[in-house]
Design a protein around this nucleic acid. Structure first.
Lengths: 170, 170
DNA sequence: CTTGGAAAGTCAACAAGGCTGACATAAACT
DNA sequence: AGTTTATGTCAGCCTTGTTGACTTTCCAAG
């Protein structure tokens, strides 16, 4: 699977990276097909709760940064506040998310997952992690390192900031 | 949870693939942020033509397989025929796609890009390839190989079939 | 203390692009 | 002749994105 150094494709040349349009097209399609698989498991689960991908994203990033503000979430998700608000309102009404008024700045709302919210987050992320873990296992550690390097380069610089802001175990 | 097979990929350095939930979460977020960047350039271009991502996908796969049938496209894109039809109808009416009745089986429609269609496809794919090329260059050839390996493992088996059906230069 | 402006929420309207269900047509297959 | 297949189309619904206008709250600068 991984014979580093013995070029299996024209792209693993030493210094020059000659990339044909066809090779790049392959990478583009890989992203397309993989993203479909990546979201498939959570999407299936969300149907049972009458939620969508937008709810998943909100729950994920609230879990990652408990107490985050609405504004911060808007920045990360890259949607309008009206769009996020609709999703957030549903989650709050259903008792999955709690919105607390800020102590220093009382205009801000700090978002937290309730017990129920944490349960849903766990169900979703376990499904998604399961697929990633299997993919990582089959591809091997070196492939995983490359995977993350390339993904990071594909991001917009601003998104890369958001991504790097949360290193492992921070 | 951690009962992977006894080291099937023992590679120098890390022999075992220990994956914490946090490391997996990082990979998940990398996919999320990268996909946003991945679609950003074409999305911007498509606005000028009043088209959306759905049109881009159709145009891409018709370009890849000129003469493909509607059914085949449905299979690859994973949407309903009503959804695809709406997009296809617009592209045909606007003169970007041509639909020819099949010769052997006259029920089938074979899809081709017109001159105009190829121009749009070129504009879109050049933008997308530009980003991929830059990312590949910055990450290096070994990272690229790993990138593609992991993406392929993330796909659903059926999607992997579609992906592998078109090797380089075929 | 007053006021400007930022943060947040709300309402209305709209569009893209998914979905289901029903139905039509032509061609191919049995 | 009857059934299945490939495609197209109409109608209607949902999610999730958008813009624009407006209000409330409240910090901070004048």
């Amino acid at each position: 699977m991984s014979d580093r150094g013995t070029g299996q494709t024209p792209i693993s040349g030493e210094s020059l990276l000659f990339l044909t349009d066809d090779q790049l097209r392959r990478g583009i399609e890989a992203m397309f097909f993989a993203y479909r698989g990546f979201t498939a498991d959570p999407d299936r689960i969300l149907q049972d709760y009458a939620y969508g991908r937008a709810h998943h994203r909100a729950v994920h990033f609230i879990k990652r940064s408990p107490g985050t503000t609405v504004n911060n979430l808007l920045d990360i998700l890259g949607v309008t506040k009206q769009s996020l608000n609709r999703v957030l309102r549903a989650l709050i009404e259903d008792g999955l998310v709690e919105s607390r008024v800020g102590k220093q700045d009382r205009r801000e709302r700090h978002l937290f997952l309730t017990e129920t919210g944490q349960e849903l987050e766990k169900e979703l992320s376990e499904a998604q992690r399961g697929r990633m873990r299997a993919a990582y296992r089959d591809a091997g550690p070196d492939a995983v390192a490359g995977f993350r390097q390339v993904l990071e380069q594909i991001m917009d610089p601003e998104m890369r900031r958001h991504f790097q802001a949360f290193k492992e175990g921070s």
